[in-house]
Simulated scan of single mutants.
Amino acid sequence: MSQKVITPEITRPPVPPFTEETARAKVQAAEDSWNSRDPKKVALAYTVDTIWRNRNQFINGRVEVEAFLTAKWRKELDYKLKKELWSYTKNRIAVKFFYEWHDTQGQWYRSYGNELWQFALNGQMQRREASINDLLIEAADRQLV
């Protein structure tokens, strides 16, 4: 997939090509953004025509990303996420992550997964592939408080 050149006023640093330091910063920025649980803010990190696979859902474009995240955080209450850099190349980053949340009945979950990211030259994410599994947990077993 070719990289798109986007105007500098919407650059999302750090930008590719990544070093270990800038890849770690990108992962931390993503963690911080997702932990805001603000769909509009999070969606701005993605290109207008971003392509996602999230579990068994296929999401196309920033508008669909925002709608997906709005629905996600209506269901996944008190969501808290931790991401860790797995590897990186010029414009790609792989992460492992887990997050905890509860449903409207108070059942807690820990969701584990891996993501593959591909970035445009301006640092916005063009592609996101996420594989995620959920584990029921007791509130007392939470790790992200």
Rank of each mutant, 00 (worst) to 15 (best):
M1E: 07
S2D: 14
S2Y: 07
Q3I: 12
Q3M: 14
K4N: 09
I6N: 12
T7S: 15
E9K: 11
E9T: 09
I10C: 01
T11V: 08
R12F: 05
V15Q: 13
P17C: 15
F18V: 00
E20D: 08
E20M: 06
E20F: 03
E21V: 14
E21P: 08
R24W: 06
Q28W: 07
D32A: 08
D32T: 10
D32N: 12
S33H: 11
W34Y: 15
N35C: 04
S36H: 07
S36N: 07
P39I: 00
P39V: 01
K40S: 13
K41L: 15
A45P: 05
Y46C: 02
Y46E: 03
T47E: 04
D49M: 13
T50F: 05
I51L: 14
W52S: 09
R53K: 15
R53P: 15
N54M: 04
N54G: 00
N54C: 04
R55T: 14
N56I: 06
Q57K: 15
F58C: 01
N60D: 10
G61I: 06
R62S: 09
R62A: 10
V63I: 06
V65A: 07
V65R: 09
V65D: 12
E66K: 07
A67N: 03
A67I: 00
F68Q: 10
F68W: 13
L69M: 07
W73S: 01
K75P: 00
E76A: 07
L77H: 03
L77M: 13
D78N: 14
Y79Q: 02
K80A: 05
L81H: 03
K83H: 11
L85G: 13
L85Q: 12
S87K: 10
Y88N: 03
Y88D: 01
K90D: 14
N91W: 08
I93Q: 00
K96Q: 12
K96H: 11
F97C: 06
F97Y: 14
F98C: 00
F98G: 04
Y99S: 05
W101Y: 06
D103W: 00
Q105T: 11
G106V: 04
G106E: 02
W108K: 01
R110E: 04
Y112P: 05
Y112R: 06
G113V: 11
N114S: 13
N114M: 11
E115Q: 03
L116A: 09
L116E: 08
F119A: 12
F119V: 11
F119Y: 14
A120K: 08
L121F: 05
L121P: 07
G123K: 08
G123H: 08
Q124F: 05
Q124I: 05
Q126I: 09
R128D: 08
E129A: 01
E129D: 05
S131A: 01
S131N: 10
I137Q: 00
E138P: 03
A140L: 15
A140S: 15
D141N: 10
R142H: 01
R142E: 00
Q143H: 10
V145C: 02
V145R: 08
